[in-house]
Amino acid sequence: MSANATKIADAVKDTIYRSCLLLDDEKWGDFLELCEEDFQYAIKAYSPEIKYDMTYFRGDRKELKTMLDMLPKHNTDHSPLKRHVTVYTVDVDEDGKTATAVTSLVVYQNMLDGINSHVDAGENHLFLIGKYIDKFRMENGRAKFFEREVRLDTRRLDKGTHWVI
């Protein structure tokens, strides 16, 4: 890998890890700041039950913002979701302007109010596993998301969530 590609790969990793901290802290607006205007987001999973590649959720940047802005109007499980990720691969395109990354993803739920808070609050549950498959554009040395696919293995999602994974 060239020095420039290494630099780009480091920038990509930095954006991924930074985005996870922001999502963990439910700083949705700050997360969207890491995304291009034409950002596309989707949560997908293959179901061996119905033998179908499913899209559980999708939206562009504007749709995500609208949805997140409306969260206070909805009843929600407020148990925080905490991500543990490892960036497995970063492939930098030849022109050095775009890159693709594959990141292993585990999301834990730190129980607060989802079941019986007296008993469950403070406990951690495994919420889902999967991968982030991200595409980036380089801008002034920074990597910005223009596409994120959350590729889930989990299909038993129990109560689900209103939040961006």
């Binding site: 559980y56 999602l157 109560k159 689900g160 969530t161």
Partner: peptide
Amino acid sequence: RVNHHNSIWGPFGRNLHEDLIGVTGQGS
């Protein structure tokens, strides 16, 4: 069609999460 279905009834949709919180509370 998938969007129409999942935006309300998917595991990350608007309504299903609320329904399931409701019955979880009853169960508790």
